[in-house]
Design a protein around this nucleic acid. Structure first.
Lengths: 339, 339
DNA sequence: CTGTTAGCGCGTTCAG
DNA sequence: CTGAACGCGCTAACAG
């Protein structure tokens, strides 16, 4: 391995001068700079980031922990964060926690050991233990997409409650009254907020939602399928389903098919999170779409501000609006199911 | 920050002993080990991975460069690689090159600076310049999913030629004769191999494919749409389309819809790469499915072998079979289009 | 079984 | 404008 002192020797200067040339820090005369640059090129010198980081106590690395790398919502978030980090000369470490708090904690410990400068965290649960670990080490954190119980943390997320509220209003206005909610885990804020939005829409309309129509499970298609089969098999099945994320919606669509329900004729389905156009030969679902890429961007920007502004600015909470896109999966209820 | 010498002082031993306890290397008596562990717990000591890596010259980190993080094929590869790396105590750095050689080179330079122990590379192009950079630094590489021109490199990929061959045989056996290929970039081996498979199927059947039916573009839905619109507008349009990846297929489906072609009645569509079940309310496309997760696993295993086996074993090339799954998007051609 | 010595490759500090 | 000395936190290589 070629080190800075090899370059120094070759250029007939001290290592310090080489360091100054590489980092454009301090003054160097044009001729020596040139000699150094020649030597660097000639030897093919590449600085060792590890040594640099050890010395300077900054790793120029952020980490992003997401809960499902196969979900395009999160990959969009990742791209947003990656682009911003890259523009500021920071590397970004992706970690996939699979909705598991254990994995999350494992990753966080690893990241602390690796001295990452900051963490973007989609927490697997409301009461994230990893927040405590990070705080103990004074590692700046921005929570993304979901809330946590811990106070005084920066958060960047979409308006779950509002999006759900609008989707349900849409269904109510079409005449639906029995609307099922297929949700994720009770320990995740987005699930809670979306169910809350559902409830508010009902209450404001002077209606009382049937508690039995609210099901909790998980964020995958298989779970969506199970939950949908459950509600569709009820004595008084719902005329509409609100899937709390995109994968659950896919499961619900599959269940509708196996139960012989046509969408939207026999059953309306609406969901949170749009699918990327890459997927959709034919966009079909009525959704509340979140600006995923922007979520990632804003979160990374906020984190970088915290790092640079040496600051104890108070925690900020950024809530990005959600856009309801009405498509063909929602329509008026079939006769006899409305009331 | 609490360092190893704080722990040593607290436990009344040397730093070396602490190091041995932490790393379970060398001998330590039970009582001193206990004292050290107490001190570690008491002080909340966390080893600094940077310092450790600098000293030991191994970062215990691999990197995976993929060309499109939004494509579930690659995220599956990523999970496979991640799981294997994690099991062996290695971290995995994800990098998204967006099919850009420039970005690829930027990332590779960054990774070299960061002293990663090995790289899993989905090359943006056949003649990957980054291979040279990596080799110059003697960084072990396993090429994934695609071939490169450079010789003597480990490769793990799916059988593109064979999969394409089978898909086309399937279409030929249904009676199709005018089959369009919507491909990616000419500089990518998977595109080349899949087109080659297409050609072989024709040649073996004693037929000559129309060169004008082979279109090159890119791997995204938008490009698939454009290419499909192109062939569907021909004077003698194809009765079937072979999309070289899943996103192109989505674009082709969209194009079929805007052109008013029903699939499979008026137009058959087959594609490479399946979509994950999370996506598919209703699996519809006839595809050649690659074992993406396993691709990632095998690649990571091979890389780790190279790292551990101190070895100049000759380069291996692992080609995993591809499975053709016939679904509803392919059927016999409409009357009058067959011949 | 444990401690000492000597760096890994860099950048900070303070003299020149 | 440049260099010498030092140390970041840790572990390899030796003693003992």
């Amino acid at each position: 391995m070629i080190t800075i002192s090899d370059v120094a020797r070759h250029a007939g200067v001290s290592t310090m001068t080489v360091s100054r040339v590489i980092n454009r820090s301090g003054y160097t005369s044009a001729p020596t700079r040139l000699r150094v640059e020649r030597a660097v090129a000639h030897l093919g010198y590449v600085p060792n980031a590890l040594a640099r980081q050890l010395r300077s106590k900054r790793s120029k690395t952020l980490a992003l922990l997401i809960t499902d790398i196969t979900n395009p919502f999160f990959t969009s978030v990742a791209r947003g964060a990656e682009d911003v980090a890259g523009d500021h000369g920071f590397g970004l470490l992706f970690c996939n926690t699979d909705e598991s708090e254990e994995k999350e904690i494992e990753y966080v410990s690893m990241l602390i050991q690796r001295q990452v400068d900051g963490v973007l965290l989609v927490p697997a649960s409301l009461s994230s233990r990893s927040m405590g670990l990070l705080r103990a080490r004074a590692v700046p954190v921005v929570v993304v997409d979901r809330r946590v119980r811990a106070a005084g943390v920066d958060v960047v997320r979409g308006d779950s409650e509002g999006g759900a509220y609008q989707l349900i209003r849409h269904l109510l206005s079409l005449g639906h009254r029995r609307i099922a909610v297929l949700a994720g885990a009770r320990s995740v804020s987005t699930t809670l907020d979306r169910v809350a939005g559902y409830r508010r829409a009902f209450v404001e309309a002077g209606l009382k939602p049937d508690r039995d129509l609210v099901r909790y499970g998980g964020y995958h298609a298989a779970e969506g399928y199970e939950m949908a089969m459950g509600v569709l098999a009820m004595r008084r099945p719902p005329s509409a389903i609100f899937a709390v994320n995109n994968f659950i919606a896919a499961g619900a669509l599959a269940a509708a098919r196996t139960m012989g329900r046509r969408v939207p004729d026999d059953l309306s389905i609406v969901a949170f999170d749009d699918l990327p156009t890459n997927w959709l030969a034919d966009p079909f679902l009525t959704v509340a779409a979140q600006p995923a890429y922007e979520l990632g961007q804003r979160a990374a920007e906020l984190l970088l501000e915290r790092l640079e502004g040496d600051g104890k600015r108070r925690a900020r909470s950024i809530v990005l609006p959600t856009e309801v896109i009405v498509r063909r999966s929602s329509g008026p209820p079939a006769r006899g199911l409305a009331a």
